[in-house]
Design a protein around this nucleic acid. Sequence first.
DNA 1: TTTTATTAATTGAACGTTCAATAAAAATAA
DNA 2: TTATTTTTATTGAACGTTCAATTAATAAAA
Lengths: 196, 196
Amino acid sequence: MPKVGMEPVRREQLIKATIESVAELGLQGTTINSISKKAGLSSGIISHYFGGKQGLIEATVRYLLSNLKVELMAKAGPNTSPEQRLMYIVEANFALVQQRKDTTRTWLSFWAQSMHDPELHRLQNVNSNRLYSNLASSFRQLMSVENAKRAAQLSAAMIDGLWLRAVLSQSDTDQFKHSEELAKDYVRSLISQYGA
Amino acid sequence: MPKVGMEPVRREQLIKATIESVAELGLQGTTINSISKKAGLSSGIISHYFGGKQGLIEATVRYLLSNLKVELMAKAGPNTSPEQRLMYIVEANFALVQQRKDTTRTWLSFWAQSMHDPELHRLQNVNSNRLYSNLASSFRQLMSVENAKRAAQLSAAMIDGLWLRAVLSQSDTDQFKHSEELAKDYVRSLISQYGA
DNA sequence: TTTTATTAATTGAACGTTCAATAAAAATAA
DNA sequence: TTATTTTTATTGAACGTTCAATTAATAAAA
């Protein structure tokens, strides 16, 4: 069976199986067996490539965060207007849903766990701060520093809140799309409210 | 040791120990041992009063939800103005934090788990819908049905979002207070935006 | 004494980790 | 080319631990 250069393939295979398992069974219900079974591999392979279950969990979070980052950078270029850039930020934060429905549930599970896991908490903070910074620097081009900070704080909360309620109510893709529109409207209203 | 009528005492004792344990160790790390140790009781007592761990978990969620309900009803009376009532709703949703710092973390853990536990999901939905209804009926007295629905949806998301970000960033009481003020400001801005 | 309340000990299932064994591929030598 | 050795990839059984649940024993109150 063994071919060379399997490592990147297996790593991705196992990370995707982890996302599926956590979405389906929760972080509590996810075991080394549930993951390896989904991946069609043996349980031992997890320790071999990730050192253990914890290592795979953390690699999965990094994978999700990195996808979010890529999503945003792919859309916005250097000539994007501040308004358009803000819309892209909102879109990027709702985009993962469309790609993979199960991603949203997985994300929330990791959020909850981050309160009790220092490394997960660190990763989650990086992401949270990036959302805030991205918003703040775009708003800054349209309003004062103080107002930009406030607008960034409020729209970050609105994005997370709409997203959270959509996940928890087990909404379909259409409802996520609706939430995305509400978030965009809100960002626009902040611009016209504080905008110079 | 055995005295009669211990049941309500023990039940509350165990529920409070559960809140503490979940806040400290997470839902994953919480065992019947960690709970019973915190309560200063034996582990067997949990099965005796709650049928098992799952029963205690669900009772704890009901306890938290019931507290939230009581919090709101205690403040608002029949003569409360719609504006004032809306402020009370916001306050009630941030109030649990001030009482017990650990409650917030516990709440988020239960939220995440509700995606994989039908009974928890049911309870969480009841609560989510109540927040929405309370907001919508108060907004209704100040604006059209359509606008009231929209305002309720947006302010519910804003409350949850601000609350979530405060919990995840492990904020202190002052920052929760600040988030509460932001939520109130937002509700006021919705009134002046849509208000007749 | 009987009932109620509680503990302490025990059980068995489930879990993550480890590791010896194996199989295929690649590298080297004949 | 063919034969041999080495490396890489993977498996799955065994081990020790942890957990929830159960059971029997105990202690106090009625």
